[in-house]
């Protein structure tokens, strides 16, 4: 019984690969390092906290005033040696914590030379991951035990890229590239959050890190890169609308977002700014994607960026096929 309790208390403040009271599962090599420092600081804190509170409680009990006219027992008003001691000891302790925290931070910031590079783009309110093959995905797929470096930037405001299981976080700033790296140690799926507040959908800006078994990542990437060949054009188009950021502004349920809805768009007449109309045919959709400012739909702002160079002809065709299904 007593042993079990002590075991629990120790477990409460120890580093556990499977995650414990304080920390989530350790999914990367960096997580192991961070958790060790966390444990050290936790034990230092528990020690000082217990010291402070037990002295406080002891004094209150021992020296409590029993009668309103009780006086204090005479004792020194200061003691320089004692005060210098309790200034110096914390200084030494915090310097140890500082040095360890900083050196670990340095190591966690310098990617190994042979790391696999993935481009990360943050935008309201979605993460996009671009692989060396050119494939763009809404989740981050990596191979276990492989160093992966992330080159990150933002399309609009500041976002924060955070994977708790990897103890990995960095702000993603517009107009800059920042680099991060990690080495996943265990296959599985891990949560990605946005931690820098970015507006309405901030707390929906979730994605996953999918860590594959050896060989699994290459198979996945090939399959995913070929979805245009393996899926029907309309299915592929649906996927593109979902994963390439179209759905952030264009709904498929009839409500207007930042841009007009896709529902019942294809084949109908569209009212444009300036009173003209245009038929929404294949050419219209293609032009709207490549030259978004050419025709502005009445009631909307000309804010859409061009997708020239970001979508291939084949992908545009797939999107057109998908729009045809939204009646």
């Amino acid at each position: 019984m007593g042993h079990e309790l002590i075991g629990r208390l120790l477990g409460w403040a120890s580093v556990q690969a499977e995650g414990g009271f304080w920390m989530p599962v350790q999914g990367s090599t960096g997580a192991v390092v961070v958790d060790r420092i966390f444990s050290l600081v936790l034990w230092v804190s528990v020690f000082f906290f217990v010291l402070i509170v037990s002295l406080m409680v002891f004094f209150v009990v021992r020296y409590r005033r029993r009668d309103a006219r009780d006086e204090a027992t005479p004792s020194p008003r200061h003691n320089t040696l004692l005060e210098v001691t309790w200034t110096a000891i914390p200084i030494v302790i915090v310097i140890v914590i500082f040095v360890w925290g900083f050196t670990a931070f340095l190591n966690l910031n310098v990617p190994p030379a042979n790391s696999y590079e993935v481009l990360v783009t943050g935008q309201k309110w979605k993460w996009l991951f671009t692989y060396p093959s050119g494939h763009v995905d809404e989740d981050l797929h990596v191979s276990v035990n492989t160093p992966v470096s992330l080159v990150m930037t933002s399309e609009d405001v500041i976002h924060g890229f955070y994977v708790p299981a990897f103890r990995l976080k960095r702000d993603v700033v517009p107009g800059r590239y920042v680099k991060l790296w990690f080495r996943a140690v265990k296959p599985g799926e891990y949560q990605i959050y946005c931690t820098q507040y970015c507006g309405t959908g901030h707390s929906d800006m979730w994605a996953k890190v999918v860590v594959h078994e050896p060989g699994g990542f290459e198979r996945w990437l090939e399959e995913a890169s070929n979805f245009l060949k393996t899926m029907s054009p309309a299915q592929a188009g649906e996927r593109l609308v979902r994963t390439r950021g179209c759905a952030q502004c264009h709904t498929v349920n009839g409500t207007a977002g930042t841009g007009p809805t896709f529902l019942s768009l294809f084949g109908h007449q569209v009212a444009l700014e300036g009173g003209r109309t245009a038929p929404a045919d294949e050419d219209y959709v293609r032009e709207s994607i490549m030259e978004p400012q050419a025709k502005i739909v009445a009631g909307f702002q000309p804010v859409m960026p061009t997708f020239k160079g970001r979508l291939t002809d084949q992908e545009v065709t797939a999107i057109i096929e998908y729009l045809k299904t939204l009646k």
Binding site: I37, F38, V41, F102, L108, P164
Partner: peptide, 8 residues
């Protein structure tokens, strides 16, 4: 204050 832990 510890840099590596702060990141998390």
């Amino acid at each position: 204050g510890a840099l590596a832990v702060n990141v998390h």
